[in-house]
């Protein structure tokens, strides 16, 4: 590996994965139109950046979890998830290259991971792992599973399958942590977590839906075979995933999940309308 450290003219760091990306063989995939190819490149480059940034989020959770004395069996999953996301970024970069794109992009500035200093370390960690693991990653599992199921067997399906397998583990890590920590909350902490749940669900709406634009894609049958989903389908899946997969187990823990979801949709209106 010959890493390069690049920056754009403004001095901001640039993620350059050209040297480490391994392009999958897409020679059997249907050839897209130039317009569709541009959409696919933009999509996979966005995923490349997103996966890289997700690694930072998982890595940032580790010191907070250690301050909260989270059991080592859970701790080890956090750097593992960060490592997975870095590998995903390289895999996405490989697809960008295979499509004829350039696997470089300026890195966005991330908001720092909230420390939730108004509560204790374990409750603060619970908020973050609830948002990242139980909500974001579970939604990711649903969306990636749908894309994976639509692909015909081949290198891109295999690649997406490995990413899906990792995201499943990340989501399971989140739900496991929630299952271990939530029963330890006292009544006051549970009430605060209930309030945070509405905030986190609203954040999901605000975070996920703009990534699933309803703007029409080029009418090209090659696009689904290049892992580009239709935004409208993905939006329906997002809402069904929250309501059918995420809310029931939260309710099983004693949270007013339906009430939090209703509050989240009020906060995020008008985006929250199906």
């Amino acid at each position: 590996m010959n890493p390069t450290f690049a920056a754009d003219p403004a001095g901001r760091p640039v993620l350059d994965l050209r040297a480490v990306a391994r392009p999958p063989d897409l020679s059997d995939a249907p050839a897209p139109s130039p317009e569709a190819r541009a959409v696919a490149i933009r999509t996979w480059k966005g995923r490349m950046v997103n996966e890289h940034a997700s690694a930072q989020v998982w890595a940032s959770l580790l010191p907070q979890a250690m301050r909260a004395a989270v059991p080592p069996a859970l701790l080890v999953g956090l750097p593992a998830a960060a490592s997975d996301e870095l590998r995903h970024a390289e895999q996405c970069a490989g697809v960008v290259l295979a499509l004829g794109g350039d696997a470089r992009a300026p890195l966005p500035t991330l908001s720092p991971l909230p420390q939730h200093d108004d509560v204790g370390p374990l409750e603060g960690f619970l908020r973050n792992i609830l948002s990242v693991g139980c909500l974001s990653e579970t939604v990711a599992v649903a969306l990636i599973r749908a894309e994976h199921a639509e692909l015909t067997p081949g290198p891109l399906r295999e690649l997406l399958g490995t990413i899906l397998a990792d995201e499943i583990q990340h989501a399971r890590l989140g739900w496991t942590a929630l299952g271990l920590i939530a029963p330890k909350l006292d009544a006051a902490a549970k009430a605060r977590t209930q309030a945070y749940l509405a905030v986190a669900l609203a954040h999901q709406i605000e975070h996920e839906l703009p990534l699933l634009p309803v703007v029409a894609l080029p009418d090209d049958p090659a696009l689904p075979q290049l892992g580009v989903c239709a935004g409208a389908d993905a939006r329906r899946l997002f809402f069904d995933c929250v309501e059918g997969a995420i809310l029931p187990p939260l309710a099983g823990l004693g949270f007013d999940a339906a009430g939090a979801w209703a509050e989240a949709r009020r906060r995020a209106a008008p985006l929250a309308a199906r």
């Binding site: 599973r145 399971r172 929630l178 299952g179 995933c241």
Partner: peptide, 16 residues
């Protein structure tokens, strides 16, 4: 997709 999402939440019950 829904089955995949629901399956990961089973980790909650195991943890509890």
């Amino acid at each position: 997709a829904m089955q995949a999402a629901i399956s990961v939440t089973l980790a909650l019950g195991v943890a509890c």
